[in-house]
Design a protein around this nucleic acid. Structure first.
Length: 641
RNA sequence: GCCGGUGUAGCUCAGUCGGUUAGAGCGACGGUCUCAUAAGCCGUAGGUCGUAGGUUCAAGUCCUACCGCCGGCACCA
């Protein structure tokens, strides 16, 4: 039985962070689970290396795109190795074998009549490498908001429009093709609206896969990157994939374009596309501009690789957005792993050592506990099969909790003080029951906690760990000696651990930035607005700017952006100024504050109030203002020049 | 603007086909055992189930409107 799953190949424009880790770790978990069920599993990922952004980033630090991409690609590969993630094939889009597969697929689509050559004139976003059909000259890109540029170029087009019906039929006939449901609804809505043909080549880019025959064209990113799923296993009889595991932001490419490409080429389609949600950092979207991206490595170093895996799978409902925070991580670790699992292992083994000389005593297991084990096994496996990892883990922990309760209720330490045969046999059964739960729990957790479960097997004295198929309570073999007892999850001091993670994070960030070139690529910052034409000093001096102090501020009725300000600039009467800063500043935040105003601006009525000047503020991303202020003492009325 | 999702304890979330007194974990507080990692176990507090209507013998659950948040599409800048 074969099982082929993929995670996206990652773009070398950024170094690996916890978001990349999340997807790949989930795939590793599925792989381990399938392997334990007897499948022959292959997991692929790789690096997406082409495109103008990479060209630019490389040039900025004086490297060729190849060299630059190689460094970052290697960084990703190392990340998976050091995190213990079982990536079997790693395909780089720059790999000649991949180029061959892309060109082969293109030829097949063309032979089947789904490729044609056309001319595109219109707006183009160089950052996203995206044609913006609807936009007019100068309009911003709908994705990244940078200005688009007008271009005219010859392209090859893919007849996506020809596949609307076939795709809809696919979604209908295979309801599980796109999961979860919410993503499926989106794709359905998108496809039902009608599909436009897709330009799949670019002449404006050099760094890419050359289109057959046409020297000056290279393939567009999505007619390149997706195909690594095939090129990675070329000649292995693996295609089609059983599962593409992706983030929700690339659903359309995987659920619409990709099956269409494959249909056009007459190739089998993947069985399933599963899109997980985003990882937020303390409830904010992680982004470079916020500077709140977190890396996996420092967390793993402090808390252990398994702790991070456990946290992400337990805390975040797979498929939905979820948030990561150091606090929550340490909390989960202490309450679930240390106090729960770790402590159960420890107390069970210690009693076996003390009361039974370190040898697993004979059973049978307590009937009620065995029933709880059986229920937990079924619930966990079913949940895992449906990728409901948090639910599955919940079921495991309810078994751990049942075992703790059983131990307290049967109080083996009291029986240990009694010498009667019946009491001693009873004690053996209790210890056996507890140890058997540890065995069941550890087997269920093996795909989730690979390192820790290996250590538990060792301490339990089990040489060949059980597989998931056929796992049942009461199968622990009595008579075997246990190993050396050591804490699996020592309790962590929150403050110390969090400090260590933050410090490690800062180091790791610096290391990654060095790899990417001294300054990290600024590609995601919009270019500053173009400068106004030069003016003479006299022109500037016509603008009379003064230091003012806000005396009062109140909202303007019927306008959510406006504040009605009274500002003292040293005149007998304070100025009335209506400023569009209400979204960024509450009235009480500006009262008393020194600001800079344009004092000789012609008055203007805003919402019925005459505004006698304007307040100076920097215009930030998204249009929100940042008021100018003074570090030194600036007397009211002083002129700015 | 259209479509979809969502709103339940301090936090994260369950809650089936409408059916007794709305649950769990974490956190807080109190008690208790001693095998265990200051762990475990028992208990307590904490809820106008977003708001307002409606259907019903009965509504967290179904319907309508509105509000908040998230997402998709369209639009605006």
């Amino acid at each position: 039985m074969k099982y082929y799953l993929t995670v996206p190949i990652y773009y070398v424009n950024a170094a690996p962070h916890i978001g990349h880790f999340y997807t790949t770790m989930a795939a590793d978990l599925i792989k381990r689970m399938k392997t334990m069920q007897g499948y022959d599993v292959v997991l692929t990922t790789g690096s997406d290396e082409h495109g103008q952004n990479v060209e630019r980033a490389a040039r900025k630090i004086g490297k060729t795109p190849e060299d630059y991409a190689t460094v970052i690609s290697e960084e990703f590969r190392q990340q998976w190795i050091s995190s213990g993630l079982g990536v079997d094939r790693f395909m780089r889009t720059s790999d000649p074998r991949h180029h061959q597969t892309v060109r082969w697929l293109f030829d097949r689509c063309r032979q089947n009549g789904y490729i044609y050559k056309g001319t595109y004139t219109g707006q183009y976003c160089f950052n996203c490498e995206l044609y913006v059909n609807e936009a007019g000259p100068g309009d911003p890109c709908p994705d990244c908001k940078r200005p688009t540029e007008t271009i005219t170029e010859d392209n090859y087009f893919f007849k996506l429009s020809a596949f609307q019906d076939k795709l809809l039929e696919l979604y209908e006939s295979q309801p599980g093709f796109i999961q979860p449901e919410i993503r499926r609804n989106e794709v359905l809505a998108f496809a039902r609206k009608g599909l436009n043909d897709l330009s799949i080549t670019r002449t404006s880019i050099k760094w890419g896969i050359p289109v057959p025959v046409e020297g000056s064209h290279v393939f567009y990113v999505w007619f390149d990157a997706l195909i690594t799923y095939m090129s990675a296993v070329e000649g292995e009889d693996r295609w089609p994939a059983d599962l593409h595991l992706i983030g929700k932001e690339i659903v359309r490419f995987h659920a619409v374009y990709w099956p269409a490409f494959l249909m056009a080429a007459g190739l089998p389609l993947p069985k399933r596309v599963f899109a997980h949600g985003w990882l937020l950092f303390e409830n904010d979207k992680m982004s470079k501009s916020r500077g709140n991206i977190v890396r996996a490595t420092p967390i793993q170093k402090v808390m252990g690789a398994d702790a991070l895996r456990y946290f992400l799978l337990r805390e975040v409902v797979f498929g939905q957005d979820g948030s990561f925070s150091y606090d929550a991580l340490v909390g989960r670790y202490n309450s679930d792993l240390a106090n729960g699992l770790g402590n159960l292992v420890s107390r069970t083994l210690t009693m076996i050592r003390q009361y039974r000389g370190g040898v697993i005593p004979p059973g049978p297991a307590d009937a009620a506990v065995a029933a709880a084990s059986e229920a937990a096994i079924a619930a966990t496996l079913e949940a895992f099969e449906n990728f409901e990892f948090s639910k599955g883990l919940d079921a495991v922990w309810s078994l751990i909790s049942a075992a703790d309760r059983f131990i307290v209720e049967s109080a083996p330490w009291k029986l240990a003080k009694q010498t009667g045969d019946e009491e001693q046999a009873q004690l053996s059964r209790i210890l056996y029951t507890a140890a058997d739960v540890v065995r069941v729990v550890t087997a269920l957790l093996t795909p989730v906690l690979p390192e820790s479960s290996a250590r538990i097997w060792e301490q339990l004295g089990i040489v060949s760990p059980p597989v998931l198929n056929g796992l049942a309570p009461g199968q622990l073999a009595p008579g075997q000696p246990i190993g050396t007892i050591q804490p699996i999850f020592p309790r962590a001091d929150a403050a110390t651990a969090i400090d260590a993670m933050r410090a490690g994070e800062a180091e790791e960030l610096a290391r990654q930035q060095a790899l990417l070139g001294q300054a990290p690529p600024k590609a995601d910052l919009p270019p500053p607005a173009p400068l106004e034409p030069p003016i003479a000093i006299d022109d500037f001096l016509k603008v009379d700017m003064r230091v003012g102090q806000v005396l009062s501020a109140e909202p303007v009725k019927g306008a959510d952006k406006l504040l009605h300000l009274k500002i003292d600039i040293g005149e007998p009467q304070p100025r009335t100024i209506v400023a569009g800063i209400a979204l960024a500043y509450k009235p009480e935040q500006v009262v008393g504050r020194k600001v800079a105003i344009v004092a000789n601006l012609a008055p203007r009525k805003l919402r019925g109030i005459e505004s006698q000047g304007m307040i100076i503020a920097a215009s930030l991303e998204g249009g929100s203002p940042a008021l100018v202020s003074f570090l030194e003492e600036a007397p009211v009325g002083a002129r700015l020049k």
